[in-house]
Design a protein around this nucleic acid. Structure first.
Lengths: 196, 196, 196, 196
DNA sequence: TATGAATGAGTCTTCATTCAT
DNA sequence: GATGAATGAAGACTCATTCAT
């Protein structure tokens, strides 16, 4: 569907979601306010409550949008796996891409952080639970497929372990203000998958 | 130091910190407001800004206080390790106690959650970094000692891995709204330490 | 006139009026909002301003509709007066029915309240004056007829007095949160008509 | 207590109440908004919620203040009753003063209206019930005393009847857009007390 | 003729922080 | 040193009304 063929209402709604997603990445959940989103999206303040019944709904949409962007990227990445990527190092990068998003750019840390912020925030914002859970499931099956396609199928429990290792490594890196959590996760994955 | 010998100012400050720590555990960072803390501590509203230049300072103190409580508990727990606790299952419980706090009571989940909330929040609140980093180091050495004392010394990297596994397991459990993150971590640790 | 023969516009207008009348009874004048009326009538929001130039017009229509319903009921009630109802007690009930609506059902209080709310509101909403005045006149003549038909014709001033007594009794009951204003009015009427 | 000796806070609170009472008289309950009150009292907007936890509280205070002003006037009026006022006509005026406030000035109608608006509003605003009830009792005893002091003691029921008659007359006048409800009540009272 | 979409103005309320005492 | 009083700025949300189609 091209921009021209998208109804204006849909486009506006989408603009709001994208503005909210940006703010979420930049400033976390605390930065999501009607005013801020409206200004960022360059729409009147009242449009925010016109398109979303409450701020919670907008937040939910932004979280879902962000995560789906990541998943889409990872899925398309999965299509392009070549024979050459069956090596352990290559698989590790695929996993990191899937969990943390594409290799670190300037905004890399922000995106990584957001994943964990969202997860934690869910505990205090029960309305996010369905989204978070759903997204979690999708990530799990994505990981499964990565391993399956690269010639080393893993049982669900083992997939969960891999995911936990990545998540734990990142959280640990965050604690130490380590500027490269991806590298921390890479190291741990390497050691964990060594025997595989 | 008895109550009588503690200057009033110090006592008030401490009361504020404890009140803030309570609110932090109950409602997360978003629940920390001057008014709420003052009411909980039963001090005048203005005392909150009198004893702490800003809300941030108070938050920092509350985070430090909370974490130190946890570490103290873990350290004292370490003293009481018996021969019988050298079995793998016992060590796992020691580790879980150290990282997540004492075995789950009614408020168990809250404490666990707070650990990760605090870690994540640090990324958005740079002023928390020193506290978080310091506490992270202390936890690391605590874990090292647990393994050393139970007859299975671990290299730093391996300790980091164990910690990552626990953290990752908990985060994963949180995603799935799993009400017992401790159990999730227990399972993963068991499988990871099996060969040890 | 059957539904089929009623132009769509007329039917919609009527649906709006009835929805507004319902809301008026349930929540008073303050509860009348475009959105609420449209939802209750199950018509598009914009229909409310399409069929009524302003909210005031819609309110007026709702007030008139409500009062006319009451009067219709009372008039039909009047038709069915039997010989046996010539006793004072019976006449009192007729009067109460006429002024306050049919004997209290679950929604009895609401209807009663609405009468006085409407009267008072008129002072602040001059556009209601014609409706209110007209309805007042009709009620007066209804009362006159009740007395005439039951064998005790009353002069206009006396009718006015009776009406005042009922109104005053109800208002008084409302002050005391008396849940049965009808009974209060009954008692007063009884004592006032004793000598008649 | 002079203005100088009144603490500033009390004076402000009082200013807010008086501003609210004015607005109440001028525009009814619907006119009572934070902004309007603050502007009228010439205080910052936030002062309205500083002195009154909610708008409801402020409304309640305004209602009570208004009614108490009326009662005070009536009570002081009662002190000054002379022998000459024992005539029925004089007593009637005393009653009208007590119920409706001092004889009509330019703002006479407004004050009269407010009494009934307040009463009716109570049904939709339960938080006003205590105030309304209390004020009702005071008015009742005031009326009793008027009759007692002018040599014609009345039983409670009879007092209630007199009050109902006045209230009913006023409501009736309001229906007819009669600009002089006081006169309507006067006429009815005269006829009712004729035999006394 | 209808109506979906839109919005400016306004609603009540909260809160970190300042300041006079 | 301590605090009651105060407030500017902002928060989420509502609503009558307009207008392009």
């Amino acid at each position: 569907m091209t921009a021209a063929s998208t109804p204006k209402g849909e486009r506006r709604k989408q603009a709001l979601i994208e503005a909210a997603a940006q703010l979420l990445a930049e400033g976390g959940f605390g930065a999501l306010r009607h005013r801020a989103v409206a200004e960022r999206a360059d729409v009147p303040l009242a449009a925010t409550t016109y398109y979303f019944d409450s701020l919670d709904e907008l937040i939910t949409a932004a979280v879902r949008y962000t995560a789906e962007q990541e998943l889409n990227y990872s899925r398309s990445r999965l299509e392009r796996i070549t024979e050459g990527e069956h090596a352990t190092e290559a698989v590790i990068e695929l996993v990191l891409d899937a969990v943390l998003g594409p290799a670190p750019s300037s905004e890399g840390l922000e995106r990584t952080l957001l994943r964990y912020e969202g997860l934690i925030a869910t505990s205090r914002r029960p309305y996010l639970a369905p989204v978070t859970k759903d997204l979690g499931r999708q990530l799990h099956s994505l990981l499964s497929e990565i391993f399956a396609r690269t010639g080393r199928p893993l049982k669900d429990d083992r997939v969960r372990q891999v995911l936990a290792l990545v998540d734990g490594a990142v959280v640990g890196a965050l604690i130490e203000s380590n500027p490269d959590p991806r590298q921390a996760a890479r190291v741990m994955l390497a050691s964990a998958l060594a025997g595989e």
